[in-house]
Design a protein around this nucleic acid. Structure first.
Lengths: 157, 157
DNA sequence: CTGGACCTTCCCATCATGGGAAGGTCAACG
DNA sequence: CGTTGACCTTCCCATGATGGGAAGGTCCAG
């Protein structure tokens, strides 16, 4: 199977399949004499696994770990569960931060007349920082997986 | 004022202040004979504005627009309000996607015994894609500002 | 045998941010 | 005066996941 067919079948873009190979997330694909990559059902299975994990917001690094557990017949479901729980916590925290920002901005917007005059509480708050969620260094986390892995209909999926 | 003092006073890292200057978000700073950048209160004010906008999750591109409105004495608060409302909608959507993922993964984790055996519904779902939030191409939005701009306590802020 | 669809590799862009190197400046202290 | 350490300058590179596109090779149907 060509990379294009594998892409359509797995819902992972060809570009990404090559990238995953380059970073060792999937093993180097078999090659035909022409140099074309050749995929089988096992490869599709693995790509599907990766895609579903991405759909749940896992980073490629964590997916690497999950793939390891997947192929380990002696794995402990406690390990998997721990990773999942930790990820849930991170997702919730990111969602909370976004909601905090949305709430703050929504109330600022609600306080704005929007009547065409220059007078604007939103601008005023940006100037002074009033009612803007403060930076709380204790709970800061800079290194988190991207917001939404959402690809745009790579397959008729 | 040095860039370091400006950084501490505004809560924007020196690195970022230079970056903002390089992309034209702030005007080129005055220079002393030594070549050091020199900041005044107006500059601090502008940097503070940018920081607060970042704290609300605005992208630098949108902040550019907001800065334009800020310095426009004839601005319409309706314009500001429209930008804010659009941003609120985006924030909410991102939060919703994260919560969807968290919900799905939480229920998978709840279904996992975590008793040390290899048997695991989480892994099973990643294999099959069952109970994993599907990719809904219609509502997809790839180009959104980062999840949390949170910097790590650049100032004693 | 040709055209178009597909594949290959390689480089570049995104977005906001930080790390670090190589070298210049400044202020305080001995 | 000299040194030291904190600070500044510019420049390049990295992140993470993804896409765009160029230059060139392959495959198959007409």
């Amino acid at each position: 199977m060509n990379i294009g067919e594998a892409s359509r079948a797995s819902g992972v873009s060809a570009k990404m399949i090559r990238h995953y190979e380059s970073i060792g997330l999937v093993p180097p694909a078999d090659r035909r004499d022409s140099g074309y990559r050749d995929y089988g059902t096992a490869d599709l299975h693995r790509l599907g696994f990766i895609r579903h994990a991405r759909d749940l917001g896992f980073s490629l690094d964590r997916i690497r770990v999950l793939l390891g557990l997947w192929s380990d017949p002696d794995r402990s479901n406690a390990d998997v569960k721990a990773i999942a729980r930790a990820h849930v916590t991170e997702l919730e925290q990111r969602a909370r931060q976004l909601n905090e920002m949305a709430d703050a901005l929504r109330s600022l917007a609600d306080a704005c007349d929007g009547d065409g005059r220059p007078d604007c509480p939103i601008i005023a708050s940006l100037e002074t920082g009033a009612n803007v969620p403060a930076c709380h260094p204790g709970g800061s986390q800079g290194a988190m997986p991207p917001p939404a892995p959402r690809r745009k209909a790579v397959a008729g999926h």
